[in-house]
Design a protein around this nucleic acid. Structure first.
Lengths: 229, 229
DNA sequence: AGGCTGTTTGTACAGTCGTACATAATCTTG
DNA sequence: CAAGATTATGTACGACTGTACAAACAGCCT
C-alpha cells in the first residue's frame, strides 16, 4: 500500500476504432454511449473513487465486462468522459482570447470574467450540462491522483489563458496576485455550479438557473478582480 | 447496495469516560490522541472514503482494533475530530456577532468578512491549523453522507450567523442573494486554504501564508459583497 | 494473594473492489 | 454458405474493506 510499484500489466485489447456503424445503428442501442453517460452521471454524483465499475454497468444496463471492453481500465474511462466534453473547455478559451485586453479598455476585466464564466453558466439547465458541470466541480476537489491528472490535462491550459489575458488587462498587478485571484474565482464558480448546500441554506428557494443570479455572480467576481488594481 | 436498510448492529462497548489518567500519563504514550491526529491528517490528505481504518492505525503505530475500541465506528471517529476542533468554529461565530452591523456603519461589510475569514487564515502556518483547514475544505466538497452530516452539524450555524449579520449590514439586498454570495465566498476561502493547484500554476512561487496575500483575499471577497449594493 | 477495571491485541467474517480471461453470440465480408 | 472480425458475457482471482469478538494484558484497590 505504501508504495504502488509499477504494474506490469499486459495491456488490454486495443480499443476498436469505432468503425462506421452499419445502417442498424439506431436499431441496436449504443451501449458504448450508455456506459459513458452512466459513468459521467455517477462520477458527478459521488466522485470518482466512490463509484464502482459494477455501479456504472448496472446503471447503463450492460454486463460488467463490457465496460472494460470498451474503455479499458477505470482511469481511462474517466479520461474519455472529459475528452468527449472538451468542446466546452475550448469554447471558453476561444472567448477569452477574443477579448480586447488593452489596458485602455476599461471593461476588459468584466469582459474576461464573462468570457470565462458565461459558457459554464449557460450550459446549466440542460440535462447534460448540469451533469458535466457538477462532474468538473467534484473532480476539481478530488484529491485522488486520477482526478489531479484530469485537471492538469484539461483545465490548466484554460487557467493559463485566463490569467495571461488578465495580466494584460491589469498590467500593474503582480502576476502571482492574479493567479491567486483566479483561484478564488474558480472556487466561487465551483460553488455556483456544484454545491448542494444552497438548497438547504435558502430553505428550498434556490434557483441557480436564474439569470438574475448569474448576473450577481459576474458582479461578485468582477468586483473581486477590480479590487486588485 | 441500493437500499442501505437499517443496521441493527449491537452497539459497541461504551466509550470509556477517559478517567483521570494515573501519574504515568506522560510515561505511557497517549494512543488515543495519536489515532485522532493520524485520522485527521489522513482524512485531510485523501478524503474520508479513501482512508481505511487500517491506514489510520498504521500511521498512528497502533493495532487496528484499537481504533474501534476508542472511537467506535468510522463515522463516529470522523465526528470526534470535528468536536475536538469546535473552538475554531465558535471563535468565528463570536467574532461575527461582535461586529456592529448597523447600516450606518460604512465598514460593516469588510468587518464581517474579516471576522469570518481571519480566524481561518491566521491558523494557517501551524501544523495543526494547516491540517484542519485542509480537512474542512475536503469535507465541504465530499459528496459522501458522512461528510454532509458533518457540514450540517458544524458549519450550518456559522453560515446562518454570517448571512444573518450581513443582511443587517445590507438591508436593501434580498436575503437569497446574500446566501448566494456567501457561497461564493466560501468557495474562495476553501480554495485559499485547500487547493493544491496553486503551487503548479505559480511554478512553485506560491506562499499562502503571506500576509500580503491574506489582505488580497479580504479585498476580493469584500468587493464582491459590496457589489451587491 | 486475588479480583476488578480499563486497555490492548490477533484474528476472522462477510463484503466489495478492479480487472483479466476464456468463451459465446452476432455481424460483416467474401 | 463459410470465414473472419467485432461485440458481448459469465465467472473467477487476489486484494482490500469495516467491524466484531474472544482472549490477553496492565495497573490499582482491598
Amino acid at each position: 500500500m505504501t508504495d504502488a510499484q509499477e504494474k506490469p500489466r499486459p495491456r488490454r485489447r486495443a480499443k476498436p476504432a469505432r468503425s462506421a456503424v452499419a445502417p442498424d445503428a439506431a436499431a441496436r442501442p449504443d451501449r458504448r454511449a450508455a456506459i459513458l453517460l452512466s459513468a459521467e452521471a455517477l462520477f458527478a454524483e459521488r466522485g470518482y473513487a466512490a463509484v464502482s465499475v459494477r455501479d456504472i454497468a448496472t446503471r447503463a444496463g450492460v454486463p460488467i465486462a463490457l465496460v472494460g471492453y470498451y474503455f479499458g481500465r477505470k482511469p481511462e474511462l474517466f479520461g474519455t468522459i472529459f475528452e468527449h466534453r472538451q468542446i466546452y473547455i475550448r469554447e471558453r478559451i476561444a472567448r477569452i482570447e477574443a477579448v480586447d485586453c488593452n489596458p485602455a479598455n476599461a471593461g476588459a476585466v468584466e469582459q474576461l470574467v464573462r468570457a470565462w464564466a458565461e459558457p459554464v453558466i449557460s450550459m446549466r439547465g440542460s440535462e447534460a450540462g448540469d451533469v458535466f458541470a457538477l462532474l468538473v466541480a467534484r473532480t476539481a476537489w478530488d484529491p485522488g491522483p486520477e482526478a489531479i491528472e484530469i485537471i492538469k490535462r484539461f483545465y490548466d491550459p484554460l487557467a493559463r489563458a485566463f490569467f495571461g489575458a488578465m495580466q494584460q488587462a491589469i498590467p500593474t498587478c503582480a502576476p502571482d496576485r492574479i493567479v491567486w485571484a483566479y483561484e478564488y474565482a474558480v472556487g466561487a464558480l465551483l460553488m455556483y455550479v456544484g454545491d448542494k448546500r444552497i438548497e438547504r441554506l435558502t430553505e428550498g428557494r434556490a434557483a441557480s438557473a436564474d439569470p438574475e443570479q448569474c448576473e450577481d455572480f459576474i458582479r461578485f467576481v468582477t468586483a473581486g478582480f477590480e479590487a486588485l488594481r
